[in-house]
Write a protein that binds this DNA or RNA. Structure first.
Lengths: 359, 359
DNA sequence: ATTAGCACTCATAATTATTGAGTGCTAATA
DNA sequence: TATTAGCACTCAATAATTATGAGTGCTAAT
């Protein structure tokens, strides 16, 4: 290596953190490079790239531009003198460009899904399957925080002389069951009365509100309760623990079909995801309040166990309250152009479905 | 190749299908070879094997014995002049020897599992997890055919003016819910009466029997029914479709950790299993009536999509009726010595649990 | 029946070209 | 000043080459 080169190297280093806006040509080329890399998975080199995309540029010029983009940290080289590969920042730029040009239109959910299944969890299952089938990656769904679902009906059923099963049916069609063990005996007749009482008092409220209401009653209104105190006790116990939302994944097999995912390092990411679903759950929950489609690329996932993977997710709401999320999990080199609208659509569809059901 | 060799070759061929019983030494050596291969995954060669297991035999003698075992199809060579590898028949011999010396003792289930969870499906979930965690392969469970579970209580709840939710609780703690849409309107009072009627008439019978009973009533006893015909109509619709048993798998990640499973051919087996759970379901259902532990080795699985894998399974019963199965799925080179007792124990434990619960 | 000895096989690993698509840099060109 | 042609160099991937070593079967001696 000549002294000359060293000096040049220092010269370059001075500009390493350059962070200007890209001009139109650079922008187009960067996006094309990311696109090409997503397509082929191989480092993009100047000569073949110029040919394939019919740029009226010489490879040398392309190299100059690529060099600039690399200096600005949009691209990197796996090793000296190989082609360029997008960095997370490069992906991010590409995805942002996509989002700019993507105007989501309101869509309605396919009514067939709704009518075919009675229970909501069955519907959710088919939504996850749909996500994974249409994306060819893994579909994920964070089930709705039932805290915000509104109870329509409460029914108490006697199991044993002092064991009661509380069944709560929500407007969205969920059926919650909770076994409550009492220290006193009750009759089914009493329970029927309690059922009516609880339904009339708590119907129309969300689980979250119900907990507050019960708390209020027990505190303030004790005298007017007569013998219904027991009913409230039962409800208190049953509704006590906040329902934890669960995460479901489907389509792992799709990921196993992607060669690069089965390689050592990625396989570990995949294993982490399957083993500890909580990782994904936490990530999703952290982004549940945000509107629209959220895209986490590579390091942005911010979990050291998961590398080389991306997550496209969208929260869904009941009315205006976000209650869960849907998404697609796959390799960083993911077909965002296809996945983003899919996830966006699904999120909106679930929102519309839930909102309609809970009216 | 000399003419001499050719003649010898023909001489060998004559005995190719030899199928005598193994003498004691051969048997011991075969089992040791399979054991060694399960341990290491590498073809077993005469020299190192004799050393490691301190046989007082020369490698040459060992080769002769191995040659005999190969002729009898217990062993094979991946290629000329490599060590020997067990064939399916070899595995089978090994497993049978294991089973001969394995005397299962009755065990009782860990009561903690029972007490912790209210609902049966939660218990099942933890049983599958237990299977996969203890075996380091994938745990599977075919859920009980609910046809044979006995109903303890039936409750009808009004959802809309002509929509009814039927809830049936079984002795084993399962909660079946079924939405029924009627052509007439009903009141909750009527439904309460129907509930009592249905419970008194159908309580103590299995789903299977209930279908028959309803059928009998509707046919023969129509006049004495008075207005309860509607109750039976509801029950008929709700219990109409036979519950299909479902299969659940957990611990796929364990399989991904086994290097040989991630290789091309095996990975496809794995993908088939994940994608089409029905494959496993069919296999299990076909063997559900058999007592004790059932082991399917390699080709015995008899499904062209799945190769190089084995299945150790045991059915479980309610009383004396087999209603489901538990098992472990993994590579043919599986630690049977550990897995067989595990599956056997689990099957017995679930049987004991279910039998006790439904009393 | 068992074993020592020998020639032979063959997967695995290490070593060494060979190739080809890529780079950066410089000097010429529009 | 931006672009391009030309050149020397780099390096991953591939193929060809060569050990190495654990294995075999066969034969003759014990």
């Amino acid at each position: 290596m000549s002294a000359n080169k060293l000096i040049k190297g220092i010269g370059v280093k001075k500009e390493l953190h350059e962070d200007r806006l890209l001009d139109e040509r650079e922008s187009a080329i960067l996006n094309a490079i990311v696109y090409e890399y997503i397509l082929t998975g191989k480092p993009v080199g100047s000569r073949s790239f110029v040919q394939k995309y019919s740029f009226s540029l010489s490879p040398a010029t392309m190299r100059n531009i690529m060099f600039d983009l690399e200096r600005m940290n949009y691209l990197m080289q796996p090793h000296t003198s190989s082609g360029r590969v997008p960095t997370d920042k490069g992906y991010r730029y590409y995805v942002n460009s996509l989002l700019d040009s993507y105007h989501s239109q309101e869509m309605t959910i396919d009514e067939k899904i709704l009518q075919k299944e009675v229970q909501l969890d069955k519907i959710f299952e088919s939504i996850i399957k749909m996500l994974s089938a249409n994306s060819n990656y893994a579909g994920i769904m964070l089930s709705p925080k039932s805290d915000f679902t509104v109870v329509k009906l409460i029914e108490l059923i006697q199991l044993e002389s002092s064991e009661v099963l509380l069944i709560a049916i929500t407007r969205t069609g969920m059926i919650l069951t909770r076994k409550v063990v009492l220290s006193v005996r009750v009759t089914q007749d009493e329970l029927s009365e309690y059922s009516k009482f609880l339904t009339s008092e708590l119907c129309g409220y969300s689980l979250h509100d119900i907990r507050e209401r019960i708390f209020g009653y027990l505190r303030l209104d004790k005298m007017s309760l007569s013998n219904r105190e027991l009913a409230l006790d039962i409800a208190e116990i049953a509704f006590n623990e906040t329902e934890k939302s669960t995460i479901n994944i489907d389509g792992i097999e799709n990921l196993l079909k992607i060669p690069e995912m089965v390689e050592e390092k990625r396989l570990n990411s995949l294993l982490s995801i399957i083993e500890e679903k909580n990782i994904l759950k936490n990530i999703l929950e952290r982004h549940i309040d945000n509107e629209g489609v959220k895209i986490l690329i590579g390091e942005e996932i911010d979990n050291e166990k998961v590398t080389g993977c991306s997550l496209v997710a969208s929260s869904y709401k009941i009315g205006n309250t976000p209650v869960g999320a849907v998404g697609v999990f796959g390799p960083t080199r993911m077909d965002y152009e296809k996945v983003v609208p899919l996830v966006d659509y699904t999120g909106k569809a679930v929102t519309s479905l839930l909102t309609r059901m809970s009216k």
